[in-house]
């Protein structure tokens, strides 16, 4: 069975934000609007983290795409009172929107601030709802959501594989953010397959897992910048 993982090469990423946009469109996220953005309620499943380092006179700014790192030991799953967030066999931490009671305990427990909450009913101005991706369910107000590693795409590929009576193969499926990154900074694939591209990259000396010290065992792996 595959264990899905992702590598993000910070040496390649130019901070263009298209991963945010692609995810927004693919996963039926809605804009929260001007007022709610001001109230700090804008939500994205993946966003750019701005890291400032260096000295006052010689500052270094780095942009880093951050998303749910799909912990193999997820603190968010441990605290959910109703099994509304769970770790799947293939290592994806999912959300059950129809069961979530909206207590936001998982948000409070996630060390990566990866989860977002529907403070209001999502709004689809005008006829925008017509472009909703039919593979991804729409979320009601009051529930928590986050990156799903585009599992609808994985399901699709798995069905195809089952139809052809074989196992799903690395490279058969990719996520919306990886697919549309102009710098090809994001790779997605099977971490259990030692020959997959992600596995190779995960073994790079540049590879590191965010906040590994917390024991969360993230499956999103960053490749540090050279130089």
């Amino acid at each position: 069975m595959a264990r899905w993982g992702m590598t993000i090469d910070l040496d390649r990423c130019t901070g263009c934000g298209n991963c945010m946009a692609a995810c927004h469109q693919e996963n039926n996220l809605t804009a929260v609007g001007r007022e709610q953005t001001r109230e700090s309620r804008a939500f994205h499943w993946i966003r750019l983290l701005r890291e400032v380092s260096g000295t006052a006179t010689h500052a270094e700014v780095r942009y880093k795409p951050v998303l749910c790192v799909q912990c193999d030991n997820p603190p968010c799953v441990r605290v959910c009172p109703v099994h509304a967030t769970y770790l799947s066999d293939e290592g994806i931490v999912g959300q059950v929107y129809s069961r979530c009671i909206g207590c936001r305990y998982c948000m409070a427990a996630c060390p990566y601030n990866a989860k977002v909450f529907n403070w209001f009913e999502p709004e689809w101005p005008g006829e925008l709802r017509k472009k909703a991706n039919p593979d991804v369910s729409l979320r009601p107000k009051g529930v928590v959501e986050k990156c799903t590693f585009c599992h609808h795409r994985i399901n699709h590929a798995r069905e195809q594989a089952r139809f052809e009576d074989r196992e799903i193969r690395d490279g058969e499926v990719t996520t919306a953010c990886a697919e549309s990154c102009p710098a090809r900074a994001i790779e997605f694939g099977d971490l259990d397959d030692p020959h997959s591209r992600v596995s190779e990259l995960a073994r790079s000396p540049r590879a590191y897992r965010p906040h590994e010290d917390l024991g969360t065992r993230p499956k999103v792996i960053y490749l540090a910048e050279k130089e």
Binding site: Q36, E39, S40, R41, F43, G102, M107, N113, V116, F117, N118, W119, F120, E121, K141, G142
Partner: peptide, 9 residues
């Protein structure tokens, strides 16, 4: 929705 509160992210 809970948006009427001052809660946020």
């Amino acid at each position: 929705g809970l948006g009427v509160t001052g809660l946020n992210q």
